[in-house]
């Protein structure tokens, strides 16, 4: 997997969010989130369930119209100039169906051609991805019949196929078995080393701590902390920082005594 070298003049941050706001009915899902993701970073977006990670990322990649605020990818305004921004972007959304009545190879071919790639390149890369992710180059099973982990992997393959400059992955390691997770980590690390930028959300501390150069912690739709991993973590473990920032309840030992 090769990543195109950064071109001249693309010094802008990989992703910049300015005051993103989203409200569902009466609930404020995301409140004034501003974030700068430096190009070439491995950025972890941490937060408990329902914190607004998916909502924020959806607004950043152009899937969900923000109520206020702006989002830029590599300097291109996602909502004003979507074509330029989306061409350089690969996305693995969470909770979004794939076109799952296609087989794995068909799905990859579909994504490649949708991105305007020529058929020969699509075939070559698709085979390589299917092979590396152990999905089987001749697998005739429809994606709808895949296991949850396989579905994550084929989704990741679709996001990687056109060699984007920025990868936005929502919960990429959820439901993936340890062997595949290691393979995915390796691919992503190589991708970042080659100059790509990965932004991913997770609530698994170990993964974030092991992979990320930068982290941001979000809870209740508000960005609580962000910066390099070292500056956020300080002397403590990331988990301690996270629990403290998010304000989780501490066990008193007397609950659920009947258990």
């Amino acid at each position: 997997m090769t990543v195109p070298a950064p071109r001249e003049g693309e010094q802008a941050a990989a992703m910049s969010l300015y005051g993103l706001v989203k409200r569902f009915d009466t609930k404020l899902a995301v409140s004034e989130v501003s974030l700068e993701v430096p190009a070439g970073s491995f950025y972890g977006l941490l937060g408990p369930n329902g914190a607004g990670k998916t909502t924020t990322l959806s607004m950043a990649v152009g899937l969900l119209r923000p109520d206020a605020g702006r989002a830029f990818l590599l300097g291109y305004d996602v909502w004003a100039d979507p074509a330029a921004a989306k061409a350089r972007l690969g996305v693995l959304p969470d909770g979004v169906r794939l076109f799952d009545r296609l087989t794995g190879p068909e799905l990859l071919a579909y994504h490649g051609l949708l991105r305007g790639m020529d058929a020969a390149t699509v075939d070559q890369r698709a085979r390589e991805l299917l092979d590396v992710l152990e999905l089987g180059t001749a697998n005739r099973t429809l994606v709808v019949d895949y296991s949850a982990g396989m579905r994550k992997k084929i989704g990741l393959a679709c996001a990687l196929l056109h060699a984007p400059r920025v990868l936005v992955l929502d919960e990429p390691f959820e439901a993936v078995d340890p062997v595949s997770a290691a393979r995915i980590r390796e691919i992503l690390q190589r991708y970042v080393a080659g100059g790509g930028t990965v932004i991913f959300s997770s609530h698994v501390m170990e993964v974030v701590e092991r992979l990320c150069s930068h982290v941001a912690i979000i809870s209740d739709g508000v960005l609580r902390l962000h910066g390099t991993l070292a500056s956020v973590r300080g002397e403590r473990s990331l988990e301690d920082v996270f629990v403290q920032v998010v304000g989780g309840r501490t066990s008193t030992g007397s609950e659920l005594a009947w258990l």
Partner: peptide, 26 residues
């Protein structure tokens, strides 16, 4: 559906013979 034999390239299995290898075709 099981794992059958290779029926050709990924684009071939999606598009068949006739459809153009373009975005519209896909």
């Amino acid at each position: 559906a099981g794992r059958g034999g290779d029926v050709g390239s990924p684009t071939g299995s999606l598009l068949g013979r006739r459809l153009p290898r373009t975005r519209f075709g896909a």
